[in-house]
Amino acid sequence: MNLKKTITIPDFTKSPSVDQVGIIERSSRFQTRSIKNESKIQALKMVLNMIDLTTLEGKDTVGKVNQMCYKALHLHDDYPGLPTVAAVCVYPSMVAIAKEAVKGSGVKVASVSTAFPSGQAPFSTKIDDTKYALDQGADEIDMVISRGKYHQGEYNFVFDEIAKIKELCGAQARLKVILETGEIGTLDDVRRASDIAIYAGADFIKTSTGKIGSAASIPVTLTMLYAIKDYFIKTGIMVGMKPAGGISTSKLAIHYLVMVKEILGEAWLSNEWFRFGASSLANDVLLQLEKQRTGVYQSKDYISID
């Protein structure tokens, strides 16, 4: 793989079109896959290891972040050999706290940035926001794109912002680019925004902030996976995917894995290339794992919330 090779930036007005009904049909096929027994256990453990455990609230405190970080490292100690989650995801102001709490565990600290969640701030502010998070030690930056500019047709502006933030991340942090697909519109737009983000240098593309009603869905994620696949075919470069928000059950999470396996291949089935942005998914997975282990349906009372 020659990383230095020159890549032509396509004309984003000509991004491939997407047929929504076709996408939904394909999506429903992943959901008819029946994942049983050892495949299911393997999948559930993979899911845990792909979670970006997230708290992004105005009321976040040092105490809350510390609790969440502890949970990230000790999902359910009653079940031996469980993996940790992939990362914890917090606001820039909490990066240092989280960093300290997960030190030495391998769990990454991701920080949202660029005036998350709306992105409605001067570019200089977005740069400061990102620099701060990086200075605090963030391993990953989850930026939002300027949806307003996107809808004004200013694709170059959106592209340049991403490219600049990517430059700031340098070798320190991997960049996740949040499209906020619920605000982007049709699947054609999701595809175009994915292309812009990927060509501008995103290491991951991510569906949503979790701050508006419409969050990740299988059809939206599938559309983004196709963009990743096309880019890989063209350049040989892998880009990661992070659906965020709305994925709270194990069954649904497993169907996401089925989709990733069948569209991109098993190379993407690790937390280097696939993440779930979720807060309540982990506990549902734990319930399922316990069910598989004990053969008995479980109660939430036996799994700690934080």
Partner: peptide
Amino acid sequence: MDMSKKKIETKNISWEYAAAP
């Protein structure tokens, strides 16, 4: 354009669907 993406070693994962008769 110079694309200096961070190179990540990919793990060799195999995930097969078990029989679901």
